[in-house]
Simulated assay, not measured.
Amino acid sequence: MRSLSFRVTGLVSAMVVLGGCERQEKAPAPAPAPVKASAPAPAPSSRSSTEGELRERLRCEALLGFSGLMAAQQEFFGEKNVWTADVTRLPSPAACTDGSRVPTLDGTWLAGCHFRYAVSVTGSHPDNSTFSVRAVGVGGLAEGLTYAMTHGYADGKPVRVWPSELVLEDCHGVRRPEGTPLPAPLCEGASNLKGFFTAQKAYFGEKDRYSESAAQVGFAPEPCLDGSRAPVPDDTWTAGCRFIYRAEVSGTAPEQTFRLTARGMKGPVVEQKLMLDSEYTWSPADPGCAP
Protein backbone atom coordinates (compact mmCIF):
# COMPACT_ATOMS: atom_id res chain seq x y z
CA MET A 1 0.00 0.00 0.00
CA ARG A 2 1.24 3.44 -0.87
CA SER A 3 2.37 5.57 2.07
CA LEU A 4 1.05 9.12 2.07
CA SER A 5 3.38 12.04 1.46
CA PHE A 6 1.07 14.26 3.46
CA ARG A 7 -0.16 13.53 6.96
CA VAL A 8 -2.92 15.35 8.69
CA THR A 9 -2.62 16.37 12.30
CA GLY A 10 -5.85 16.58 14.22
CA LEU A 11 -7.57 19.96 14.40
CA VAL A 12 -8.23 20.43 18.11
CA SER A 13 -8.95 23.02 20.84
CA ALA A 14 -12.02 24.90 21.89
CA MET A 15 -13.31 27.98 20.06
CA VAL A 16 -15.65 30.78 21.15
CA VAL A 17 -18.14 31.89 18.50
CA LEU A 18 -18.36 35.51 17.38
CA GLY A 19 -21.94 36.37 18.14
CA GLY A 20 -23.01 32.73 17.91
CA CYS A 21 -23.12 30.35 14.94
CA GLU A 22 -26.78 30.69 14.07
CA ARG A 23 -27.59 31.12 10.42
CA GLN A 24 -27.90 34.88 10.72
CA GLU A 25 -25.85 36.17 7.86
CA LYS A 26 -27.12 39.75 7.99
CA ALA A 27 -26.60 41.90 11.05
CA PRO A 28 -29.74 43.77 12.27
CA ALA A 29 -29.72 47.47 11.44
CA PRO A 30 -29.06 49.65 14.48
CA ALA A 31 -31.96 51.77 15.75
CA PRO A 32 -31.51 55.45 14.75
CA ALA A 33 -30.64 57.75 17.63
CA PRO A 34 -32.56 61.05 18.00
CA VAL A 35 -30.60 64.01 16.66
CA LYS A 36 -31.12 67.64 17.66
CA ALA A 37 -31.15 70.30 14.99
CA SER A 38 -27.90 71.77 16.26
CA ALA A 39 -26.18 68.41 16.67
CA PRO A 40 -23.63 67.15 14.13
CA ALA A 41 -24.65 64.49 11.62
CA PRO A 42 -24.69 60.96 13.08
CA ALA A 43 -21.63 58.75 12.54
CA PRO A 44 -21.86 56.29 9.60
CA SER A 45 -23.35 52.90 10.42
CA SER A 46 -20.94 50.09 11.41
CA ARG A 47 -22.94 47.66 9.25
CA SER A 48 -20.12 47.23 6.74
CA SER A 49 -17.59 46.13 9.36
CA THR A 50 -20.16 43.76 10.89
CA GLU A 51 -20.86 42.21 7.50
CA GLY A 52 -17.09 41.93 6.99
CA GLU A 53 -16.84 39.87 10.18
CA LEU A 54 -19.73 37.66 9.09
CA ARG A 55 -18.17 37.12 5.67
CA GLU A 56 -14.89 36.20 7.35
CA ARG A 57 -16.75 33.63 9.44
CA LEU A 58 -18.20 32.19 6.25
CA ARG A 59 -14.74 31.90 4.70
CA CYS A 60 -13.52 30.12 7.81
CA GLU A 61 -16.50 27.77 7.71
CA ALA A 62 -15.59 26.79 4.15
CA LEU A 63 -11.93 26.36 5.15
CA LEU A 64 -12.87 24.02 7.99
CA GLY A 65 -15.24 22.10 5.72
CA PHE A 66 -12.49 21.58 3.15
CA SER A 67 -9.97 20.63 5.82
CA GLY A 68 -12.27 18.01 7.33
CA LEU A 69 -13.06 16.45 3.95
CA MET A 70 -9.38 16.43 3.00
CA ALA A 71 -8.50 14.59 6.21
CA ALA A 72 -11.24 12.02 5.54
CA GLN A 73 -10.07 11.52 1.94
CA GLN A 74 -6.48 11.01 3.06
CA GLU A 75 -7.59 8.42 5.60
CA PHE A 76 -9.62 6.63 2.90
CA PHE A 77 -6.67 6.77 0.50
CA GLY A 78 -4.40 5.28 3.16
CA GLU A 79 -6.70 2.26 3.39
CA LYS A 80 -7.89 1.83 -0.21
CA ASN A 81 -5.15 3.52 -2.30
CA VAL A 82 -7.83 5.53 -4.12
CA TRP A 83 -9.84 8.68 -3.49
CA THR A 84 -13.63 8.43 -3.22
CA ALA A 85 -16.43 10.45 -4.81
CA ASP A 86 -19.00 8.55 -2.71
CA VAL A 87 -20.15 11.14 -0.19
CA THR A 88 -21.61 8.40 2.03
CA ARG A 89 -17.99 7.45 2.79
CA LEU A 90 -17.19 11.00 3.94
CA PRO A 91 -18.28 12.91 7.04
CA SER A 92 -20.79 15.73 6.72
CA PRO A 93 -19.40 19.18 7.49
CA ALA A 94 -20.66 20.72 10.72
CA ALA A 95 -24.27 21.86 10.99
CA CYS A 96 -25.30 25.18 12.51
CA THR A 97 -25.47 25.31 16.29
CA ASP A 98 -29.25 24.83 16.11
CA GLY A 99 -28.69 21.62 14.12
CA SER A 100 -29.94 23.01 10.81
CA ARG A 101 -28.22 22.55 7.46
CA VAL A 102 -28.60 24.00 3.98
CA PRO A 103 -30.64 21.94 1.51
CA THR A 104 -28.83 19.66 -0.94
CA LEU A 105 -29.68 19.27 -4.61
CA ASP A 106 -29.46 15.45 -4.48
CA GLY A 107 -27.58 12.60 -2.81
CA THR A 108 -24.25 13.56 -4.38
CA TRP A 109 -23.90 16.62 -2.12
CA LEU A 110 -22.93 17.02 1.53
CA ALA A 111 -24.70 19.71 3.56
CA GLY A 112 -23.09 22.00 6.11
CA CYS A 113 -24.38 25.10 7.87
CA HIS A 114 -24.10 27.72 5.10
CA PHE A 115 -22.47 25.64 2.34
CA ARG A 116 -23.15 22.45 0.42
CA TYR A 117 -20.19 20.44 -0.89
CA ALA A 118 -19.72 18.36 -4.05
CA VAL A 119 -16.85 15.86 -4.41
CA SER A 120 -15.31 14.59 -7.66
CA VAL A 121 -12.36 12.32 -8.51
CA THR A 122 -10.10 12.47 -11.57
CA GLY A 123 -7.92 9.50 -12.55
CA SER A 124 -7.69 6.10 -10.93
CA HIS A 125 -3.98 5.29 -10.59
CA PRO A 126 -2.73 6.15 -7.08
CA ASP A 127 0.21 8.13 -8.46
CA ASN A 128 -1.88 10.05 -10.96
CA SER A 129 -5.24 10.91 -9.43
CA THR A 130 -6.81 13.80 -7.56
CA PHE A 131 -10.03 14.65 -5.78
CA SER A 132 -11.75 18.03 -5.83
CA VAL A 133 -14.29 19.61 -3.49
CA ARG A 134 -16.58 22.49 -4.41
CA ALA A 135 -18.32 24.52 -1.69
CA VAL A 136 -21.40 26.50 -2.73
CA GLY A 137 -22.92 29.04 -0.37
CA VAL A 138 -26.69 29.00 0.16
CA GLY A 139 -28.80 31.88 1.46
CA GLY A 140 -28.06 35.29 2.96
CA LEU A 141 -24.48 36.51 2.76
CA ALA A 142 -23.35 33.02 1.72
CA GLU A 143 -25.44 33.10 -1.46
CA GLY A 144 -23.17 33.26 -4.49
CA LEU A 145 -19.97 32.31 -2.60
CA THR A 146 -18.18 29.41 -4.29
CA TYR A 147 -14.80 27.91 -3.38
CA ALA A 148 -12.96 24.92 -4.84
CA MET A 149 -9.91 22.90 -3.79
CA THR A 150 -8.00 19.98 -5.31
CA HIS A 151 -5.58 17.52 -3.72
CA GLY A 152 -3.79 14.37 -4.86
CA TYR A 153 -0.95 13.31 -7.15
CA ALA A 154 0.13 14.02 -10.72
CA ASP A 155 2.87 11.81 -12.13
CA GLY A 156 3.72 10.73 -8.59
CA LYS A 157 4.14 14.28 -7.27
CA PRO A 158 1.85 15.88 -4.67
CA VAL A 159 -0.66 18.39 -6.03
CA ARG A 160 -2.72 20.86 -4.05
CA VAL A 161 -4.79 23.77 -5.32
CA TRP A 162 -6.24 25.90 -2.54
CA PRO A 163 -8.41 29.06 -2.66
CA SER A 164 -6.25 32.09 -1.84
CA GLU A 165 -9.15 33.65 0.09
CA LEU A 166 -9.21 30.85 2.67
CA VAL A 167 -6.34 31.69 5.03
CA LEU A 168 -5.68 29.53 8.09
CA GLU A 169 -4.28 32.36 10.22
CA ASP A 170 -7.47 34.40 9.72
CA CYS A 171 -9.44 31.65 11.46
CA HIS A 172 -7.50 31.63 14.74
CA GLY A 173 -8.17 33.90 17.69
CA VAL A 174 -11.66 35.33 18.03
CA ARG A 175 -12.93 34.23 14.64
CA ARG A 176 -14.99 31.18 15.52
CA PRO A 177 -16.96 29.66 12.65
CA GLU A 178 -18.95 26.45 12.64
CA GLY A 179 -16.89 23.31 12.23
CA THR A 180 -14.07 21.42 13.90
CA PRO A 181 -12.17 23.93 16.05
CA LEU A 182 -8.69 24.96 15.02
CA PRO A 183 -5.80 24.24 17.38
CA ALA A 184 -3.47 26.87 18.76
CA PRO A 185 -0.63 27.44 16.23
CA LEU A 186 1.92 25.92 18.65
CA CYS A 187 0.01 22.63 18.51
CA GLU A 188 1.20 22.04 14.95
CA GLY A 189 4.75 21.63 16.24
CA ALA A 190 3.72 19.62 19.30
CA SER A 191 1.50 17.19 17.37
CA ASN A 192 4.16 16.61 14.73
CA LEU A 193 6.84 15.99 17.37
CA LYS A 194 4.61 13.29 18.84
CA GLY A 195 4.30 11.75 15.38
CA PHE A 196 8.08 11.97 14.88
CA PHE A 197 8.60 10.30 18.28
CA THR A 198 6.25 7.44 17.35
CA ALA A 199 8.00 6.99 14.00
CA GLN A 200 11.42 6.78 15.69
CA LYS A 201 10.22 4.17 18.18
CA ALA A 202 8.64 2.08 15.41
CA TYR A 203 11.84 2.26 13.37
CA PHE A 204 13.90 1.18 16.40
CA GLY A 205 11.54 -1.78 16.87
CA GLU A 206 12.45 -2.95 13.36
CA LYS A 207 16.13 -1.92 13.05
CA ASP A 208 17.43 -1.75 16.66
CA ARG A 209 18.59 1.80 16.03
CA TYR A 210 17.28 5.34 15.59
CA SER A 211 17.81 7.53 12.56
CA GLU A 212 18.39 11.22 11.93
CA SER A 213 16.58 10.90 8.60
CA ALA A 214 12.91 11.82 8.82
CA ALA A 215 12.23 10.13 5.49
CA GLN A 216 13.91 6.93 6.65
CA VAL A 217 11.70 6.58 9.72
CA GLY A 218 8.57 7.59 7.76
CA PHE A 219 7.96 11.03 9.25
CA ALA A 220 6.30 13.37 6.73
CA PRO A 221 4.66 16.45 8.29
CA GLU A 222 1.69 18.05 6.59
CA PRO A 223 2.23 21.27 4.60
CA CYS A 224 0.01 24.34 4.95
CA LEU A 225 -3.48 24.07 3.52
CA ASP A 226 -2.31 25.87 0.40
CA GLY A 227 0.50 23.33 -0.04
CA SER A 228 3.35 25.64 1.02
CA ARG A 229 5.99 24.73 3.59
CA ALA A 230 8.29 26.59 5.97
CA PRO A 231 11.81 27.36 4.70
CA VAL A 232 14.63 25.09 5.94
CA PRO A 233 18.23 26.25 6.56
CA ASP A 234 19.74 22.95 5.33
CA ASP A 235 18.85 19.36 4.51
CA THR A 236 19.07 18.18 8.12
CA TRP A 237 15.62 19.75 8.64
CA THR A 238 12.22 18.58 7.38
CA ALA A 239 9.58 21.22 6.68
CA GLY A 240 5.98 21.24 7.78
CA CYS A 241 3.64 24.21 7.49
CA ARG A 242 4.98 26.73 10.02
CA PHE A 243 7.53 24.50 11.79
CA ILE A 244 10.63 22.63 10.67
CA TYR A 245 11.85 19.43 12.34
CA ARG A 246 15.16 17.71 13.05
CA ALA A 247 16.34 14.56 14.83
CA GLU A 248 19.70 14.23 16.62
CA VAL A 249 20.84 10.73 17.58
CA SER A 250 23.51 9.99 20.20
CA GLY A 251 25.30 6.76 21.13
CA THR A 252 26.03 3.52 19.33
CA ALA A 253 23.22 1.18 18.30
CA PRO A 254 21.40 -0.35 20.00
CA GLU A 255 22.36 1.85 22.99
CA GLN A 256 21.09 5.08 21.49
CA THR A 257 19.05 8.09 22.46
CA PHE A 258 17.52 10.84 20.36
CA ARG A 259 16.33 14.41 20.66
CA LEU A 260 13.70 15.87 18.34
CA THR A 261 13.34 19.60 17.69
CA ALA A 262 10.48 21.62 16.22
CA ARG A 263 11.38 25.21 15.31
CA GLY A 264 8.80 27.82 14.33
CA MET A 265 9.64 29.64 11.12
CA LYS A 266 6.68 31.84 10.22
CA GLY A 267 3.48 33.40 11.44
CA PRO A 268 2.68 33.47 15.17
CA VAL A 269 5.22 30.72 16.02
CA VAL A 270 8.39 32.40 14.69
CA GLU A 271 11.37 31.63 16.97
CA GLN A 272 9.33 29.27 19.16
CA LYS A 273 11.06 25.96 19.81
CA LEU A 274 9.90 22.62 21.20
CA MET A 275 12.06 19.58 21.98
CA LEU A 276 11.17 15.99 22.81
CA ASP A 277 13.68 13.26 23.68
CA SER A 278 13.66 9.47 23.56
CA GLU A 279 12.47 9.31 27.19
CA TYR A 280 9.45 11.43 26.22
CA THR A 281 10.73 14.46 28.13
CA TRP A 282 9.55 17.81 26.77
CA SER A 283 11.45 21.08 26.80
CA PRO A 284 9.72 23.31 27.63
CA ALA A 285 6.89 21.39 29.29
CA ASP A 286 4.40 19.41 27.20
CA PRO A 287 2.06 22.05 25.70
CA GLY A 288 -0.84 19.66 26.19
CA CYS A 289 -2.06 19.49 22.60
CA ALA A 290 -4.05 16.44 21.53
CA PRO A 291 -2.30 13.94 19.22
Rank of each mutant, 00 (worst) to 15 (best):
P103M: 05
C96S: 11
P158A: 14
W162Q: 06
A85W: 02
V87R: 00
T88S: 15
S100H: 03
G68T: 14
V82A: 15
M149I: 09
S100F: 08
L141Y: 11
T130S: 03
A39M: 01
N128E: 03
V121G: 01
R89V: 04
H114A: 01
C113D: 13
S38Y: 04
L105E: 15
K36N: 05
E169L: 14
P34W: 00
L166I: 07
R116W: 02
R57Q: 15
Q73S: 12
L168K: 07
M70P: 00
A33T: 03
E53W: 08
H114Q: 11
L58N: 12
Q73H: 07
P103H: 06
E143N: 14
G65E: 00
E143F: 05
M70E: 14
L58F: 10
F115L: 02
S45L: 02
G139S: 08
R101Y: 08
A39G: 00
C96K: 00
S67F: 03
G144S: 09
S45P: 01
G156Q: 06
G123P: 07
F77H: 05
Y153A: 13
A85M: 05
V82I: 12
G52T: 13
L90F: 08
T146Y: 05
L63R: 14
L54K: 02
A41Y: 00
V136T: 15
R134L: 10
H114P: 05
P42L: 01
A111Q: 04
A118V: 08
H114V: 02
Y153T: 04
S92D: 03
S45I: 00
A37R: 06
A31Y: 06
T88I: 04
E61A: 09
T50A: 13
K26M: 12
P103K: 06
V159A: 03
P30S: 14
T122L: 06
D98K: 00
K36W: 00
T122G: 09
Q73W: 07
S164A: 15
A31R: 14
P93R: 11
G140H: 03
V102Y: 09
T150M: 12
A43K: 12
S92G: 08
S120C: 03
T130L: 10
A85Y: 01
A71F: 08
S45G: 08
Y117G: 09
G137N: 14
V35Q: 00
